[in-house]
Design a protein around this nucleic acid. Structure first.
Lengths: 141, 141
DNA sequence: CTAAATGCAAATTGTTTGCAGAAAC
DNA sequence: GTTTCTGCAAACAATTTGCATTTAG
């Protein structure tokens, strides 16, 4: 939050009640939230906000390098707080759960692929889709 | 094309001039075309088609396992003919070029990741984003 | 005070659907 | 002759924008 305020000030932008509410809810809820879900949550604490402010604040948080936007295969964007560590995602096609993982060997091989193509790798997206352990166990469902 | 006709017949569906035109253009142009581009190309040979028919035929081709839909990071879906071999994509953020590649080691590591999570991997998506060799060379641009 | 932010409603983009007329089989 | 298509326009969902009003600095 303090960081958010600082980044806003740097840019000559203003801190407002709504921005704080949205940011607080976002960082509180944490990971992989959609705009719709965030909107619903923020409404609880600040019933007047509109989608516009949600989306504008999400963009702002992205521009402040505090948030990352992800597009999985279900049409709507999801947002997560930026993390020190890079990670990729496993998405359960049954229950929708999103599991994060890291794998350095894969990252290294991706660099190697880019090198072979003579290209410069800037970022990547890797998503594994399947059935998670819980669902395989006939779990929570 | 023959295959397309066969698959349609199997399903009790009809072969039509438009479907043939769209399929022919699609398989002719080949890879990673967007609905918009396909629409423009098909218009040249069959000026009356509407987007509806384009999208419906794309879905049809997908249902006939002749085409695959991809969602890269630019908002619109791209379509490619199904291929014997699985592959992933490198997307140039400068010129938009899409380069296919395969890497078995990465695939094996992805399986390993799923195994570690106790999950069952059904499919994956891996996209590398960066600058392609041509653009690095100051090339075609 | 004045530049920036809000909320609403209207616009946009990519894609889908309803329906009346037009083909396939 | 039905059943399945087509084209159009209207509907859709997710996101963005214009604008008059409010608010932070």
């Amino acid at each position: 939050m303090t960081l958010f305020h600082a980044r806003l000030k740097e840019r000559g932008l203003k801190s407002t009640g709504q921005r704080d509410d949205i940011a607080r809810v976002f960082f509180g809820i944490g990971r992989h939230i959609s705009a719709e879900e965030l909107y619903a949550e923020v409404k609880k604490v600040s019933p007047h906000v509109g989608y516009a402010t949600i989306y504008r604040t999400l963009r702002l948080l992205r521009e402040c390098d505090l948030l990352q936007e992800r597009h999985f295969d279900d049409g709507q964007a999801r947002y997560e707080a930026v993390d020190e560590r890079h990670h990729d995602h496993f998405i359960c096609e049954r229950c929708g759960r999103i599991i994060e993982f890291e794998n350095d060997s894969i990252e290294r091989l991706q660099e190697a692929v880019a090198r072979q193509l003579g290209a410069k790798l800037r970022r990547h997206k890797m998503e594994l889709y399947g059935t998670c352990a819980d669902c395989l166990a006939g779990g929570t469902h």
